[in-house]
Amino acid sequence: MTRKLVTVSVFGLIGAAILISLGVWQLQRLAWKESVLAEIDARIAAAPVALPATPDPIDDRYLPVAAEGTFTGDPLRVLVSVQGSGPGYRLISVLETGGRRVLVDRGFLAEGVALPPTPQGAVTVTGNLHWPDEIDSFTPDADIARNQWFARDVDAMAAHLETEPTFIVLREISVPDAPITPLPVTAEGIPNNHLGYAVQWFGLALVWLGMTAFLAWRIRRS
């Protein structure tokens, strides 16, 4: 009986130690992720620079840029819902700048609001380079005939509008563009669930210890 009690106790302590170590690891991951998010926030808010000649989707993600040029053509509409504003569209326009054609996410237009005229003449846009990861196996194909897209697929939009796959998410524009509201890049959409995972592991450790104590009590009684 004593050997059985020792076996249960050792097994319980080893299991709890493993669960606690997983919780500690998640807390370490939390600190790392918060550091990464702080770096991203600092990068997003930095002073804008000129548009790189060949932007890289990895190295230049979130890079703040400023570009001067003219909008051309009709914008693409990407279906989106904004908290507090309801459904609507992101408007994606072509900016011709320095002999280049790039994509600009001008912001949100609420459903039912008439599409305003595209700003004419020279404009200066300030924003962040971005390559959104919004495509999965459930994303419908774009309805080209109705000009309705369901995700910001940079490569597909660039091919459709005959631009380079460079995507600027607008923060500011030098001319009035109401009723379009810019939706700047932020770090808010980047998942950070490590605290929740840590709580789960620590909770499992407590349950494991409780079950071990209960089993040990039953053994002692018998």
Rank of each mutant, 00 (worst) to 15 (best):
G196W: 10
T97C: 02
S93M: 14
V10W: 09
R101Q: 01
E96N: 07
V78A: 01
N192V: 05
V185P: 09
V104R: 04
D105C: 13
S81Q: 10
E172G: 03
P184R: 10
Q28N: 11
A31M: 14
P64C: 11
T7R: 09
P176Q: 12
Q26E: 03
V65T: 00
P119M: 10
S9C: 15
R220W: 10
A38P: 14
L63G: 04
P64E: 08
V104I: 12
P191D: 03
A151E: 02
T7Q: 07
I40K: 09
W32H: 15
P75M: 06
E111A: 14
A205L: 05
S81K: 08
V125S: 09
A38N: 14
I219E: 15
F108V: 15
G210K: 04
Q26R: 02
I20S: 01
T163L: 13
A213N: 00
L76E: 12
A122V: 07
I40G: 11
I44S: 09
G189V: 14
A110M: 09
Y197K: 12
A17W: 00
R100Y: 05
A156Q: 15
P132E: 00
P75H: 00
A114S: 10
Q28V: 08
D155K: 11
T124V: 06
L51G: 01
H160R: 10
R29T: 15
P64V: 08
A187P: 08
S21L: 04
V102T: 06
D177Y: 01
S85L: 13
N128E: 07
Y197E: 12
L170E: 14
L95Q: 00
G99Y: 01
A142F: 15
L13I: 11
T163D: 07
L209G: 05
Q148R: 15
I92T: 12
T126F: 03
P48K: 04
L215R: 13
V8W: 00
A158W: 06
A50G: 02
G121Y: 07
T118C: 02
I44E: 07
H194Y: 11
V113R: 13
D153E: 11
G127I: 03
R106A: 13
G73V: 05
F71L: 07
W217T: 07
G15M: 09
I144F: 04
V102A: 06
A38R: 14
L103P: 05
